Amino acid sequence: MTAPINSSFIMNHTCLRIKDPKISIPFYTGKFGMKLIAKFPFESFTLYMLNYETSENKNLNWSARQGVLELCHNHGVENDPNYKLNNGNDDSAGKGFGHICVSVDNIQTFQDQLLDKKVDFKKKLTDGRQKNIAFALDPDGYWIELIENGSNKKDNSTDSSTYKLNHTMIRVKDPLKSLDFYRNVLGFKLLSTKKFPDAKFDLYFLSYNHDESFKQDSMDGADQSKLESIIELTHNYGTENDPDFKYHNGNSTENGQLQGYGHTCISCKDPGTFCKELDEKYDNLNWSVKWNQGNMKNIAFIRDPDGYSIEIISHDLFKNESKI
């Protein structure tokens, strides 16, 4: 049973905690071509909203856009030499979140530009078996996957107007439970599935798609690379059969765990009604903050089967409160 999903539903942003905005903001704007579109200072933290601004989205409020990256800075951590963040890929810190992904017109040229700008890489195009993807590292050690969308591709050239914040990857324990949640509770559509039985993992790509004729699990890679705000669920075989297995959700500090990844976020025109409808249709949802009941009003947070947080907001949240 699914709460009604209308054409206003989008995946709006992905939140990552950062140590120093004076380092992270210039990294994403100066090296990855994003634009700082909103800044919201609160008593103990500040939120920075970044986006690839286009002629189609530049007149929209930040919360009505797709492909937004939210960087959360807790005041004072930049002065703590011992402050560290969990990038989600370290076994000792607790794996969970994997990476964000940026798609570009010409991946080779873009990688070369990043190397010229002294960006560190986890994997270059020439490394490993997959020669069509790379992984850069941001100042806090988060992985940024690079893929090519080929939009108006020109030799030895790259144009930031073609860049997209394409997807956010999280690891999931049981894909059946996760797919059921994202599709039937939140209303996402399954764009495609990639199976790698030899390597013992599968990938599921989901997003909002409001085309009534869209056939789920049918999108090819070329079309998918041109989109924004996809969520990639990674399933490593066998985790679903281990009762003690658990991924780190990015927010837990249990047993000294480090935080890092914060959440993804969906936005729609009437989130209050949507949350009410979910509550009426399901009696076992894991709300961390019910609609309008937290310290910050007009938002809600729901957890998926692995404990990852999904924020629910409106298209006009903080519309007149940006400090930029």
Rank of each mutant, 00 (worst) to 15 (best):
M1T: 10
N12W: 04
N12P: 02
I18L: 12
I23H: 10
S24T: 10
F27S: 06
G30L: 10
K31F: 05
F32L: 15
A38N: 11
F42C: 01
L47W: 11
Y48H: 10
N51V: 00
T54F: 07
S55I: 13
E56S: 12
N61S: 11
N61L: 05
N61C: 08
L69F: 06
L71E: 00
C72F: 11
N74I: 13
N74F: 13
H75E: 12
D80H: 08
Y83G: 05
L85I: 14
N86Y: 01
G88C: 02
S92D: 14
K95D: 01
C101I: 03
I107W: 01
Q108W: 10
F110D: 00
D116Q: 15
F121D: 01
F121K: 03
K124R: 15
G128E: 06
Q130M: 14
A136F: 02
D138Y: 03
P139Q: 04
D140V: 03
G141V: 03
I147E: 09
S151I: 11
D155T: 14
D155K: 13
N156W: 09
T158I: 12
D159T: 07
S160T: 14
Y163N: 10
Y163W: 15
T168V: 15
I170S: 04
I170E: 09
R171N: 13
F181P: 00
F181W: 06
N184A: 03
T193E: 12
T193S: 09
F205N: 05
L206N: 00
Y208D: 03
L227R: 14
L227A: 10
L233S: 04
T239F: 14
D244P: 06
T253Q: 12
N255K: 10
G260C: 07
G262P: 03
H263I: 09
T264I: 14
T264W: 00
D270M: 00
K276E: 15
L278M: 11
E280T: 10
W287H: 01
W287S: 02
K290T: 11
K297Q: 07
A300D: 04
D304L: 07
S314T: 03
L317A: 06
